[in-house]
């Protein structure tokens, strides 16, 4: 059974005074198997962020279903949503979203604290994780004292520490320089190799080229998808670029 199943997802926004309606997602259907590393690509306005918000249970679809482990997350009650998010999902954001008021360690602890875990358990979990991510020596620092790449690694640690079923990453390399981007993508690859399911939304061909599968979103629908199979990152990069070119031309034809 697939870990995540999305079927017939539709989202229509109504502007504040009930005037124009904007269709962000028209009909999105796809599934993600356990242990997969999926990238979702698309231009601005293609519905990427809306899709991610619905998957994160931060927003509700107009119609359609999202099943995580066979459970419909659109049907979860408001009061249980927060617990659902912190127990099942891990988030990595473009601008890291670390809290300035906490040291890196406390930022990483945040979801565990919200779960009500004891300090002993938390410190037991963080040590191996920090070692793996190479931030052991930075744990007592504050976000504004470390580089962007280090902040993002701390954010990844925060996402991983709850052992989530699914990591949702929203443009994780968007605010990083090329070296830090490379390091982060390698890190994602390693994590995925250990069995962690990752769903990443991105603009970046380079980032998408690291994924096992790439979904292309256009006008609120899944337009195309690419499987890596046995290809290298470079080969994947070329294929994604070609697809994007075709998509752009097609877009022009449609218009």
């Amino acid at each position: 059974m697939a870990l995540l199943e999305v079927s017939g997802l539709k989202k229509i926004y109504t502007t504040r005074f009930g005037g124009a309606q904007v269709q962000a997602l028209s009909n999105v259907t796809f599934s993600v198997a356990e242990g997969e590393y999926v990238a979702i690509m698309g231009e601005s306005g293609s519905g990427k962020t809306t899709l991610l918000n619905i998957l994160a249970a931060l927003d509700k679809p107009t119609s359609g279903k999202v099943l995580l482990d066979g459970k419909d997350i659109t049907a979860i009650k408001e009061g249980d949503l927060a617990a659902f998010r912190r127990d099942r999902l891990g988030f990595v954001f473009q601008d890291f979203n670390l809290l300035d008021t906490f040291s890196l360690q406390d930022n990483i602890f945040l979801p565990l604290v919200l779960q009500g875990k004891s300090y002993e358990e938390m410190s037991g979990r963080i040590a191996p994780l920090a070692r793996k991510l190479g931030i052991s020596h930075l744990l007592s620092k504050y976000p504004y004292e470390v580089s962007g790449g280090e902040q993002q690694r701390a954010a990844v640690a925060r996402a991983l520490i709850t052992n989530p079923r699914l990591i949702l990453a929203d443009e994780p390399t968007g605010a990083l320089d090329s070296r830090a981007t490379e390091a982060l993508l390698n890190l994602f690859g390693d994590i995925n190799a250990e069995g962690q399911t990752i769903l990443m939304v991105t603009h970046s061909v380079k980032a998408a080229a690291h994924a096992g599968r790439v979904l292309f979103l256009r006008d609120g629908e899944v337009y195309h998808q690419l499987y890596r199979g046995g290809q290298t990152v470079e080969q994947m990069f070329g294929k994604i670029s070609d697809t994007l070119t075709v998509m752009t031309q097609g877009g022009e034809l449609d218009a």
């Binding site: 994160a56 009061g79 927060a82 998010r85 988030f91 945040l110």
Partner: peptide, 15 residues
């Protein structure tokens, strides 16, 4: 901003 982040990480409105 702080509470927005925490909400995303899994802080419920009541908490």
């Amino acid at each position: 901003r702080r509470f927005d982040i925490m909400r995303k990480v899994g802080l419920s409105r009541r908490e």
